[in-house]
Structure formats: structure tokens, C-alpha cells
Simulated scan of single mutants.
Amino acid sequence: MKNNKVLVLHSSSDLYGASNSVVRSLMALRHVGLEPMLLLSETGPLSQKVEALGIEVRILRLGVIRRKYFNLLGLLNRKYYILRASLKIRRIIEKESFQLVLTNTTVIFSGAFAAKLAGVKHIWHVRETITGPAFFKNFITYLLNKTGHTNFFVSNASRDNYLPKIQAEKTQVIYNGIEYSKFVDNAYDLKHELGISQDKILISMVARVNLLKGQKYFLEIAKLLLLKNKNLHFILAGDTFPGYEYLLEELQEYIVSNNLVHNIKDLGFRSDVYNIMGGSDIFVLPSIQHDSLPTTILEAMAAAKPVIATALGGSTEMVVNGETGFLIPHDDAKVAAEKIQELIDNPELRSQMGLKGQERLKQYFSIDAYLENFGKAVLEVINQ
């Protein structure tokens, strides 16, 4: 190798699934002897965590694509910042002799453009499963083909979403892995924290609040279950991107207008997800759109909790239906509630499914496997 420097770009500085995954990717690069540097648009919990690992972080407005920019003025705004960022990143690449650029999301274009201008290899690490609008999906597919030396996907479902238009020979699936020690045998008393009785069955959902994850669907399912069960309590954990606070307001309005205030608690953002999983009885992730490989499902599995997830995207590769949990429809709250009811009625089934899920997590989604597989895959690209 000429050198061992890799420039990594990520879209936010929070500590949700994708951000925690980029930390593991940085660790994997160091694991195989590479020297990564992370570029972010702003400081935050992620930048602090990465710097604590001794990895350099720089802040540069990257022109991240969000749905709110899908209008004329928004697209013009993004064009300006993407072009400006591309030129600045190109100078960084050339001045500091980076051999490879890795973009940890498909909502940042500037890294790919800068790598093309600088004549260095670029890897897309695709974490989103974009199904629409059609023009945007087609454009992303075009970028993957034209600016990706190799394209990593976090699940087969995510990769298949871009077939047959994407060049299959340039794709590789690498499952995320998590460090699960804080989740295993965690007996945190979340019910005590919430001030509810120990005989309540606690059903949780942990996810960033957006149009993908299905928080409103979760509330609809909860409402149906509460008609039949008085021993249930539901929790939501997660905040939203700036500018999308109206989604939180809509959820709160639904809770109040449906008289669910005493049975549902919104915890907001929590950094101790391991305690939430440890203190829950059932975990639900009711995504209403394709979700590539949601980390919170892995975290629930690590905590030996049965997982209810919609049969969309990567969830179908994580949850073994009827064995480690249940896969439910994304648009039928009645059917979803019926499957969850099976777990409510059978504590032994909850325990069995949880333990099988934990075994599956350790076998297929461990941090050790990820460090080895991801690091090795990047090295192969560099050495080609």
C-alpha cells in the first residue's frame, strides 16, 4: 500500500443506529492497520465518542440530503453546499494523501464527487433502502454505479432493492455487528423507573422518530391491545431530526386524544438503550417502509427479548418468524396486535424466543465478526 489513510464521511453526529455503526466501521479500519479520519457536518455525541477513541474528526458542511430539501429551493441549496464541500474534500484528499474515501450513507454525495475529482477509490456503504421517489432512487443507483468502486450493503434486502439496475459484481453484503456485553444479563428495573407495578408487561419501541420507523403505527397497535389487556405499558424512546418536531407533536396528540396517557410513556432520546432493552418484556419495531438492518433489533436480540418487526427490508434476515419473534404486516394493526397477543399470553414463549434470538445474534451479528469482515473487505479494495 502507498499509505493507510482512509477518509470516512457520515451524515449526522447523533448516536442512533447508523452513527453507532460508523463507530464500529472506524474500529474495523483500525483493526486491519488502516488510519481513518471522520468528516461530519456538525459536532455532537458521535464526534465526542470517536475522538475519545483517538480518531481524528473534522467538521465540514457536507450538504446532507434530507426529505425536506425535495423542492426547488431546497435542491438549489443542496447543490451549492454539495459542490462547495466536494471541492474542499478534494483538497483534503490531495493535501493529506488519502488513499480511499468511504461514504457511510447515500445521503452524502460530496465524498463520491471529491474522490472522483482526486482520482482515488470510493466505497459507498449503503445503509438506506430507498424506494422512492423514483427520480431519487434512480439517481442514487446511477451514483452507485458511476462513483462506487465497490458498494457495501448491510443486508441482502437493501442490495436487492437496487437490482437489476445496479452492477451486481460491484456489490457486497456485510451484516452489521454489535458489542453485546451490556445487553446480556441486563436486569435493569425499568418498571421501577417508570413507577409502574412489576406485574405489568412492558412493550418498548426504540427508534429515531421519522416517517420510516412507524411510531404512529406502534400507537395504533398499542390502542388495540389495551382494549383487551389492562396489564400493559408501552414506551417510546427516540427524538427526531431538527425541523421534524411536528412528528413528535402528532404522536403526543394521538396519545392524548385516544386516552392513552396513563399507558404510554415517551422517554425521548436515551443513551442507555441497553437498560431499556433489559427492562422490557417485548420489543417492537413496526417500520412502515423498508429498513435496511435496524440496529435496535440486534440490541433487543442481545438482551434476549422477543422481537416483533414488520416484514420489510433487513428485518426478515434478522428475525426468524415464529422462532425468535414474529414478523407482522406493515399496514394492518389488527393482525399485528394478534401476533403480539400471543406473546402477552405466554411468558414461556417470550423467554424461549428471546434466548433463541440472543443465540442468533452471537452467531451472525457479533462485533468480532464485523471487525474482521468489514476491515478485510476495505483492505481488498485498497489492494486491488
Rank of each mutant, 00 (worst) to 15 (best):
K5L: 15
H10K: 13
Y16G: 12
A18V: 07
N20A: 10
A28W: 10
L29I: 15
S41L: 10
T43Q: 11
E51M: 14
I55G: 15
V57F: 07
R58V: 10
L62R: 03
R67D: 15
N71G: 07
L73P: 01
G74M: 00
L75C: 13
K79G: 12
Y80E: 12
A85P: 05
A85W: 01
A85T: 14
L87Q: 03
E94V: 10
E96C: 10
S97T: 06
I108S: 08
F109V: 12
A115C: 14
V120R: 03
K121R: 06
I123N: 06
P133N: 04
K137V: 09
K146Q: 11
T147F: 14
F153I: 14
V154Y: 06
S155H: 02
S158G: 03
K165G: 06
I174E: 09
G177A: 08
F183C: 00
D185E: 14
L190M: 04
I196D: 07
I196T: 07
Q198T: 06
D199L: 09
M205S: 14
N210F: 01
K223Q: 15
L224A: 06
K228Y: 03
L232H: 02
F234V: 00
G238V: 13
D239Y: 07
D239K: 07
E253Y: 06
N259G: 12
S271Y: 11
N275R: 15
G279S: 01
D281Q: 08
L285S: 08
T295I: 07
T295L: 04
K305G: 00
K305Y: 05
V307M: 00
V307F: 00
A309P: 06
V319I: 13
G325H: 13
I328G: 10
P329S: 01
H330I: 00
D331A: 01
D331H: 08
A337C: 11
D345Q: 12
N346L: 00
G354W: 02
G354Y: 00
G354T: 09
K356G: 06
Q358Y: 10
K362Q: 14
Q363S: 15
A369H: 09
E372G: 06
I382E: 05
Q384F: 00
